[in-house]
Design a protein around this nucleic acid. Structure first.
Length: 201
DNA sequence: CAAACGATTTTCT
DNA sequence: GAAAATCGTTTGG
């Protein structure tokens, strides 16, 4: 079951980021099917969040996708190399987003290994926002696509994550946001190797 | 038009 | 553990 549109339209992007833990990200790109369970997310709370690209209601060609209605993806290039995948939430003109930072491989592991030029499965396959996109075949050309397919999906496969298995922490790589860098907007699944580095949890 | 800077990862020591 | 790699986006002149 893919998630209903209503899942993405709520006001509370923090709660949505937490609820995405345990959901399954699926891509079907050029006939290659891969999926992975989301293990780490970060919330970016729009205009009042100094760590967000949309801080101060800044609208540019790049950030415009965050102002669209929830249920699509916002993908941008970081450090000139890495394609970072975000889930857009809330209604039109409210630029909330959730960065997917890591996931545990489920289907199409061989395809992920090929894309990452690796020979055996280890956390480095998908534990990190840039390398997760690389493993799933996601690039900026997919910016703005629906999360209900046909190329990208987020599914609820009835994986149950008890609340005590979700660890809260501070976001990674946002020191420039000063006091907002201390906000508890990062969520990780406990007991998994598929967690990115940084801000040790 | 020119310059600075990342929501990072890899490699080398 | 430290440093390099690398380029689109944003900002300032």
């Amino acid at each position: 079951m893919t998630l209903p549109r209503s899942f993405y339209l709520g006001d509370d992007v923090i709660a949505i980021a937490r609820d995405l833990i345990g959901k399954v990200l699926v891509t079907n790109i050029n006939g290659h099917y891969t999926s992975a369970m989301i293990t780490e997310t970060e919330a970016y709370e729009g205009v009042g969040d100094k760590a967000s690209h949309a801080y101060g209601n800044r609208r540019t060609q790049r950030t415009e996708m965050m102002y669209t209605r929830g249920g699509v993806c916002y993908i941008y290039l970081c450090y000139g190399i890495h394609h970072l995948f975000n889930v857009v939430t809330n209604e039109t003109d409210i630029p909330h987003a959730v960065l997917i930072r890591a996931a545990a491989p489920i289907d199409g592991v061989d395809i992920m290994l090929t894309r990452r030029k690796m020979t055996k499965v280890q956390p480095r396959l998908t534990a990190g926002p840039g390398i997760l996109s690389a493993a799933m075949g996601i690039t900026t050309t997919h910016n703005g696509l629906s999360l209900n397919g046909p190329k990208i999906f987020i599914e609820d496969r009835s994986i149950c994550i008890p609340s005590y298995d979700i660890i809260t922490g501070t976001r990674v790589g946002v020191a420039y946001a000063k006091e907002d860098a201390l906000l508890p907007y990062r969520f990780c699944l406990a007991n998994t190797q598929y967690i990115s580095k940084g801000t040790g949890l």
